[in-house]
Nucleic acid binder design. Structure first.
Lengths: 244, 244
DNA sequence: CCAAAAGTGTTCCTAGTACACCCATGT
DNA sequence: ACATGGGTGTACTAGGAACACTTTTGG
């Protein structure tokens, strides 16, 4: 069953591309949008920074046929960052398949955008380094500021293009989806949520207008006020939680 | 060069999935949103209706590595419908890769949404039949009304899911992109544009309010008034053209 | 006391919605 | 003449943007 039966004339005789997943893992530190990059240890692009990713597992032997694409993305994140990846928000961006995007041969990559809230980031960051387990082929890894650092880098493969797609998607879905809540702790203040919006939009927002917007979210049942207040070094702020 | 060189330890030794493209080709006939389906002539799902599509060409022999994903989608459209596909609007929806989505083995499909304006549709429709060249493995093909007919069909593979994604994408991008202009002739009246909006949204819109909206588009330079008027069986209407 | 962020109030304007109404044309 | 879709007017409302202002904390 590794080859097709002869009846299916053009299906399995064709050469197949390799298929990978690549993940743009994004988080907000203070007021700064960051993306996790991994320094490649092997050719091609050895020494360059790249998005975490790897080959999709395909098992054609038994009745099993390997993992879903989402599972592949989560597995690669776990392998290369040590993150318990079950609770991470994942969103597929699409397929990147330019014939020459990988010098080794025809490789089609399924790109993902992943969002990490500050609480989970704590379970992974070790003083500046982003990773606990320095993975097999990942020589190094850390967070890069999207606004400043990453623009000056030459990324491996077409990962610049993938990253741009991830940021574009994030920006366009910021106002019409609940992605912002994935980048904020389980309970959060209006100011913290605003910082996430500002980091993604890359501009400061009017605090008063943003407050009223959040209050409307509460009216709509999208968020609810949580018990307690947060001491912020200034006047204590009410905390809210996202209602899924 | 069909196998990897031994140095790349985990890249090419792995079994690879087959990769296909599937295209939801959509058009608006009168006030009705339609999708082109093809009746499968072979197993699996022989006799079922399916989206046009096929395997991505990969050529690992020379320096050539085959076609882009977009090119594969256009080629399949051309092969199965006889459409000169250069001018068709194409938008990638994403990758569908559930392990069991194809009973023959692990097949990952890159899904597309394509839009056909009424003028080009004329070059393809032959009294009810959608196709000029009845393609190789396509026993039959025709337009199905999305609102009524297609809901009662059992589509092949996960094509229902792909079609739903296409329609969702279309609806969500209707107000924030220029997709509507891809479904209208090169010059169009406000009424014709409104019919496209109504077909996609599945509800009627207030003609007066829609008119003002289109007038704002003109103020923004998105569209321009075109010379002449259109006789519609009633009061002649101004015509506009989309400014790309 | 002062800086700084939380929180309140007000004004202006755009765009969506609903609905009444007139106009030009083919039949 | 009349039905039909083209085209105009108007009033209501929600929400974005700009900005002045008060409140409560830590230093």
């Amino acid at each position: 069953m590794t080859k097709a039966k002869p009846a299916a004339k053009h299906s399995y005789a064709y050469p197949r591309p390799a298929v990978t997943v690549d993940v743009a893992l994004v988080t907000v530190v203070d007021t700064d949008l960051k993306v996790l990059l991994i320094r490649r240890g092997e050719a091609p692009f050895a020494g360059s920074w790249a998005l975490p990713g790897g080959f999709v597992r395909v098992d054609e032997s038994g009745t099993q046929r390997g993992e879903t694409l989402d599972a592949a993305a989560r597995r690669e994140l776990a392998e290369e960052t040590g993150l318990a990846s079950d609770s991470i928000y994942l969103e597929q961006l699409g397929a990147f398949g330019a014939p020459l995007r990988d010098p080794r041969g025809r490789v089609i990559s399924i790109a993902y955008c992943a969002l990490l809230d500050p609480e989970l980031r704590g379970t992974l960051a070790v003083k500046g380094k982003a990773v606990l387990r320095a993975g097999t082929d990942a020589a190094d890894a850390r967070w890069f500021s999207v606004a400043e650092e990453v623009t000056r880098l030459e990324l491996a493969f077409d990962h610049r293009e993938i990253l741009d797609a991830a940021l574009l998607r994030l920006r366009s879905r910021l106002d019409t989806s609940t992605v912002a809540f994935e980048l904020v702790p389980p309970t959060f203040t209006i100011g913290e949520l605003r910082e996430v919006f500002e980091a993604i939009r890359g501009e400061s927002l009017d605090a008063a207008n943003f407050r009223r917007r959040v209050e409307r979210m509460q009216d709509d049942g999208l968020i609810a006020s949580a018990p307690g207040k947060r001491r912020t070094g200034t006047k204590p702020a009410k905390v809210y939680r996202f209602v899924r």
